Simulated scan of single mutants.
Amino acid sequence: MSKKIIYFLSAIFFAFLGFMVNDLVVKADINGVTVTPLIENGDTDVTDRFEIVGKPGAERTVKISIGNFGINKLHLRIEPTNATTSMDGKIVYTDKVLAGQYGLQYAFSSMTKAKNIVLKPNKTKDVTFKIKLPDSKIDGLIMGGFNVYDTSKDGAKGNANVPVWITGDNKAVGGIVSLHNLTLDVIDKKPHIIINLQNKELGQMKNVIVHMTVKRKSWLDRFNLGPKKMIADTTYDKVAPNSKIPVDFDQNQTPIQAGEYVVKGAARSGKATWTFHKTYKITQDQANDINKRCKGLIYNKTTTYILIVCVLLSVIFLIFWAIWYSGRS
């Protein structure tokens, strides 16, 4: 029997074994890798994540099965972190989250430790983690999880997530939206202004609708020639507890300009509504740092043209004044 046939039959066997252990296999965004939460005697009936309902100071053990059905040996890291909210309203576990961020009291990374494994082709490995719950009562939901990624690549480009939700009493808790800050970023070589809202509560939110405007102040506003108001209407299907809610303003080929930016907006979830109004300042150094990392920017020459016209008109006025004055003498 050839080696190719042996590898093929082995892959089928391990895949079948994975489905027998659990109905759910988390498809990793890493070629040939599957990640399966092995849920045994869970606190709830869900099968797509670990749900722990525990008392303060309790210790729980969870197990994850990882299979490599590719042709290459993999060096994987399984890293605990808290859930965050993506720009398109999804719950993700790719960011490293620390206690204190967005009102977060308990970082999942402080309850268990990361692990590194080496996985040969056509092999599976069960990895066990001990989770130590906080010593104080959890009034809400800690939405943690394990981010599994290939250490030889960018984790954001190849990873799988295994959620671990922790509560003290399994009662639903809502969230509260507030304005956090304004940040700048470069995405696909284009400048972006990002207004970060935040959910500072230990509760997951659903169907959060956000309407937001951003306007840079300019002396040209009095002539209706100033920068246009940027508008964002976004719906976030899910918002993680204690996470930022990024509202993206893609500048495309327009460079970031220094100045004061007026942010106005509102967010709505169910019957609750929150409004926002604040002015942020972008310095010239911040604008330059972003713009030099972008490509294909098209600079607006309106101000330059207006100044040139003003100078020309001033020169013409002086010439006519000089002619008029010399004619009187």
Rank of each mutant, 00 (worst) to 15 (best):
residue 144 G to Q: 05
residue 115 K to S: 08
residue 167 T to K: 07
residue 141 L to E: 14
residue 136 S to Y: 13
residue 130 K to A: 12
residue 117 I to W: 08
residue 133 L to G: 06
residue 114 A to K: 15
residue 171 K to F: 11
residue 164 V to I: 14
residue 138 I to S: 07
residue 140 G to L: 07
residue 122 N to E: 05
residue 164 V to Q: 06
residue 145 G to D: 01
residue 168 G to F: 10
residue 142 I to Y: 04
residue 121 P to H: 04
residue 110 S to G: 09
residue 123 K to I: 01
residue 154 D to S: 09
residue 159 N to Y: 04
residue 111 M to L: 15
residue 158 G to T: 00
residue 130 K to G: 10
residue 139 D to G: 13
residue 110 S to Y: 10
residue 167 T to V: 03
residue 153 K to Q: 14
residue 165 W to L: 09
residue 131 I to P: 06
residue 126 D to Q: 13
residue 151 T to R: 10
residue 120 K to D: 13
residue 166 I to R: 09
residue 123 K to L: 06
residue 156 A to F: 09
residue 114 A to N: 11
residue 137 K to F: 15
residue 138 I to H: 08
residue 161 N to L: 02
residue 142 I to W: 06
residue 128 T to N: 04
residue 160 A to H: 02
residue 138 I to W: 07
residue 147 N to V: 01
residue 123 K to W: 07
residue 156 A to E: 12
residue 130 K to N: 15
residue 170 N to T: 02
residue 125 K to C: 01
residue 135 D to N: 14
residue 174 G to R: 13
residue 156 A to S: 13
residue 115 K to H: 08
residue 172 A to C: 06
residue 149 Y to M: 01
residue 145 G to V: 00
residue 132 K to F: 06
residue 173 V to S: 14
residue 126 D to A: 09
residue 158 G to I: 02
residue 159 N to H: 11
residue 150 D to H: 00
residue 155 G to D: 07
residue 108 F to D: 08
residue 121 P to S: 04
residue 141 L to P: 02
residue 151 T to W: 05
residue 128 T to P: 02
residue 174 G to W: 10
residue 146 F to H: 00
residue 161 N to P: 00
residue 119 L to C: 03
residue 161 N to I: 00
residue 144 G to L: 05
residue 166 I to V: 15
residue 170 N to M: 05
residue 164 V to K: 02
residue 113 K to Q: 12
residue 154 D to A: 07
residue 151 T to F: 04
residue 159 N to R: 03
residue 108 F to H: 12
residue 175 G to N: 11
residue 130 K to I: 10
residue 169 D to S: 14
residue 155 G to W: 03
residue 149 Y to T: 00
residue 130 K to E: 15
residue 127 V to W: 04
residue 144 G to V: 05
residue 151 T to L: 06
residue 107 A to K: 09
residue 113 K to Y: 04
residue 138 I to E: 06
residue 173 V to H: 15
residue 165 W to K: 03
residue 160 A to Y: 01
residue 131 I to G: 07
residue 156 A to H: 08
residue 128 T to W: 02
residue 134 P to W: 11
residue 164 V to C: 07
residue 173 V to L: 11
residue 141 L to T: 08
residue 160 A to N: 00
residue 151 T to Q: 11
residue 156 A to K: 01
residue 173 V to M: 13
residue 118 V to F: 07
residue 166 I to Y: 09
residue 171 K to P: 09
residue 127 V to M: 05
residue 126 D to C: 03
residue 118 V to G: 03
residue 153 K to L: 11
residue 157 K to S: 12
residue 143 M to F: 11
residue 109 S to I: 13
residue 150 D to P: 00
residue 159 N to M: 00
residue 125 K to R: 10
residue 157 K to Y: 06
residue 130 K to H: 11
residue 132 K to A: 13
residue 170 N to F: 09
residue 152 S to I: 00
residue 144 G to H: 03
residue 140 G to P: 03
residue 174 G to E: 13
residue 144 G to W: 05
residue 134 P to N: 12
residue 172 A to G: 08
residue 126 D to E: 14
residue 141 L to F: 05
residue 140 G to D: 08
residue 163 P to H: 02
residue 166 I to H: 10
residue 168 G to D: 12
residue 131 I to N: 08
residue 165 W to N: 11
residue 148 V to A: 01
residue 143 M to G: 06
residue 130 K to Y: 09
residue 108 F to W: 12
residue 111 M to R: 10
residue 118 V to H: 07
residue 130 K to D: 15
residue 143 M to A: 15
residue 161 N to M: 03
